[in-house]
């Protein structure tokens, strides 16, 4: 056998090579394999598509909106039905364009999702991984704290927190984040328990690695994929909780175009002007569904037990 490559490699062959020549190629190859597993799932792609659209909408809300999301045309355009000239999805009781409000509302939705993910996931991961790896009283203390949070219904706890902190979108986010980390801690702990006695962790211990290093660099990466899947699946719930708090008047305050608050204000006209409450409802439904589809796809693609490939 000669070492000279017979033909120039295609990009695909380069990615799928079982003899990567650099760290970069190995990593890209792995990402590509994950992508191939993920993209084999049509519904997951659809979910991803909807979310990409959401992000696009949020970024370009200012350009895309035909009208202002906060100030309406009280005199000439109150409660117009969908399809009215200039108001594709109709208007609400203050004459505000619903489409523009939805577009700007997507920013709030993304804000909530990202902040909750950024606060809750790392908290849960750290608490769970440390508890699982350390064991003993550390585990007992951390897990009892987790249990206390789990003992309350999520929405009730969030309500209490918002009531204490005062209504507002930031406090709503904080309340949701504080109530949603415990399940992540449980998952991270369970994953940690399965890997902590693995030989490859023992091997790192035998190199003299500190417990902190083992948890951060060797245990946590093993928890990540199941955590990502779980967070994605939970996002639908987070959106609904945020909408619920908004609906109860404890989340975003008027005139912010938060989707839940929009439903709340449209509730009064649900029988005669159905579109006021329905349009934000559909938006919430679509985004929640997209996250669920994405989560399902990620579960297959990121399964750490893929081992072989």
């Amino acid at each position: 056998m000669t070492a000279v490559p017979s033909a120039p490699m295609s990009r695909r062959d380069w990615l799928l090579s079982d003899r990567p020549q650099s760290r970069m190629q190995a990593r890209l190859g792995r990402a590509y394999m994950t992508w191939r597993r993920f993209s084999a799932n049509r519904l997951a792609l659809l979910g991803l598509g909807i979310l990409v659209l959401l992000i696009f909408m949020a970024i370009f809300a200012g350009v895309l909106s035909p009208h202002s999301p906060v100030t309406g045309n009280l005199a000439g355009a109150r409660l117009l039905p969908p399809g009215s000239p200039g108001y594709l999805l109709g208007t609400d009781e203050q004459g505000r364009d619903i489409l523009s409000r939805l577009l700007h509302g997507s920013r709030l939705t993304l804000f909530v999702i990202i902040l909750v993910a950024v606060i809750a996931a790392p908290t849960g991961l750290v608490v769970g991984a440390v508890a699982g790896y350390a064991g003993g009283w550390v585990d007992a203390v951390l897990m009892r704290i987790t249990d206390i949070f789990l003992a309350f219904p999520k929405l009730v706890l969030a309500l209490a927190l918002v009531a204490a902190l005062g209504p507002g979108i930031e406090n709503a986010v904080l309340a949701i984040a504080v109530t949603s980390w415990p399940p992540y801690a449980r998952i991270a702990r369970a994953e940690t328990m399965t890997v902590r006695n693995a030989d490859y962790i023992a091997a790192v211990r035998l190199m003299g690695a500190s417990p902190l290093r083992i948890v951060l660099l060797h245990v946590m990466p093993m928890c990540l994929s199941s955590l990502i899947v779980r967070i994605t699946l939970d996002m639908a719930g987070v959106i609904l909780t945020a909408a619920g708090l908004g609906f109860l008047g404890l989340g975003a305050q008027p005139p912010l175009p938060e989707w839940g608050a929009m439903i709340a204000s449209g509730r009064r006209f649900i029988l005669d002007q159905w579109w006021v409450a329905t349009m934000p409802g559909i938006a919430i439904l679509l985004v929640s569904l997209a996250f669920n589809l994405l989560g399902d796809g990620l579960r297959d693609a990121l399964d750490p037990r893929e081992a072989g490939q």
Partner: peptide, 19 residues
């Protein structure tokens, strides 16, 4: 079981040197 499933050989061998 003794090699970390998410690390390349390169990364595995670097760990003791880093420690």
């Amino acid at each position: 079981g003794s090699l970390h499933p998410r690390q390349t050989i390169d990364r595995l061998l670097q760990e003791p040197l880093a420690i």
